[in-house]
Design a protein around this nucleic acid. Sequence first.
DNA 1: GGGTGTGAAGCCGTTCACAGCA
DNA 2: TGCTGTGAACGGCTTCACACCC
Lengths: 218, 218
Amino acid sequence: MTPPITHPIPKKTIERLSEYRRSLLSCHEQGITHIFSHILAGMHGITAVQVRRDLMLIGFSSDTKKGYDVKVLIEFINNILDSREVMNLAIIGMGRLGQAITSYFNGKRRKMRIVAAFDVDPTKVGTAIDNIPCYHIDSLAEVVEQMDISIAVISSPTSVAPSLVVPIINAGIKGVINFTSAPLNFPQGIVAENYDITTVLEKVAYFVKEADENGDKS
Amino acid sequence: MTPPITHPIPKKTIERLSEYRRSLLSCHEQGITHIFSHILAGMHGITAVQVRRDLMLIGFSSDTKKGYDVKVLIEFINNILDSREVMNLAIIGMGRLGQAITSYFNGKRRKMRIVAAFDVDPTKVGTAIDNIPCYHIDSLAEVVEQMDISIAVISSPTSVAPSLVVPIINAGIKGVINFTSAPLNFPQGIVAENYDITTVLEKVAYFVKEADENGDKS
DNA sequence: GGGTGTGAAGCCGTTCACAGCA
DNA sequence: TGCTGTGAACGGCTTCACACCC
C-alpha cells in the first residue's frame, strides 16, 4: 500500500504531514470520520489550498466529496512517514531537557522509540530513568551497535556538544537532532537538524519588538 | 547607532543573526578580533555568500579587507535583535521542559529574562524554582500586568495547551512560543511560533529512512 | 453551491557570477 | 590574489485561478 513514490517530497510538506497526522489522530479519537481541507487547514493556521497541495504531492486523493476519510488518510500518512521497522533513538544528555523529551515523546509513536540514554553523571549511569537505561557516553558505539540505534538526540549542555560529533559519527548514527546552542556540522550522509531553543526565543522577541515599534495599527 | 532600518529583514536572516551572534561571542571570548565570511559560514554549515548577503540585508559592511571586526559586528547585531528595554518572559508549565528551558536560557542574554512561571501543581505554586517565582495559572493576567511580561513560553502538557490560548490573549501577551504538540492559533497581532519537538523527530526519522532506502551511495 | 485537484503565476530565499577593492 | 558586495538567475514553496465533480 505504500505509494510508488513519485518524486521527492519537500521538507516543509513532511513537517506538515507530521502535524496533520496528530490532528487527524485526535479527530479520529473524537469519532470524526471525515474532514474537509479547510477544517484541517484552520487547525494549523494555514490555507486549504496548502493542505490539498500537500496531499496531492503525496498522491492522496479522496473519492468522495464529503471531505477526506480520516482513518484512510492517517494510514496513508503512516505509510509515507513511518519506517517499516521500529526506529530506535538515543538521548545524549539525560538532564531535565533529555527527560522532558523522553516523557513527551515515548509512547506517542509506534514506529519510533527512545531506547537508551547517555550521560556522564555517575549517579545516572547504570540506572534507568523513566524506564530508559542510562549508559556512559564512552560506551556509545557499543550500545548503538547492540541496540540498533539510528538517531541521536543531543540534549547535553551546549559546552560539551561539540565533543560529541566525532563519537556520534564513529558510532554509525544516521540522524541527529541537536537541541543545544552549539551549531554542529555533520558530514554528508548524516541527517542533522539544529533545533536551538535560544534562537526561537530571540526570533519571537525580535518580531514582538518590531510589531511594537512599527505596524501596531489600532 | 541603530541602523535606519531599510526594509523588513527576512525571518530566516533573523534566525541566522541570532546564531551568528552566539558564535561571534564565543570567538570574542577566545580573543579573535576579526573573522572572514567563509569562516563564520563554516561554523554554521552554510555558504560565505549567505553570510555576506545577511550582513548586506542588515546594512553591515566592513571597511577593512581583513574580515569583519568581531566586536563591531556583535554590537551591530545587538542593535538589530535586542530591544531597548529588557523583555520579560513567562514560562507556562514548570515541569521538566519548563525548568530545562529556564536553566538553558536565563543569564544568557542581557535583554531577555524569564521572570515568572505558571503552573497548577500546588506543590509548585507559591514557591520559587531556580529563582523563578511560580504562580497559579489563574493569576496570569495580573502577574503579566504587574511584571510587564510580553512573551509566554508554553511548556505545559499538550492536552492543556489549547485551554491557554484565551487566557494568554486576555493577559495581553505579545509573543508566544509553543513547545507542545497542539497547534495553537493566535489572532493577528500576536507573534506565535509553534515549535513542536515531535515534528522534528519525525522529520529526521523520515529523511533517515529515505536516505537508507534510496541514495545511500557508497 | 461547496468542495477537490492542479497548471500557472508569484514570491521568497539561495546561489551564481562577477565587479571592485586592498 | 583573496576577500567583500551585489545584480541577476535559479529553485522551491505558496497562492491564484479555474476546471471538474457531487
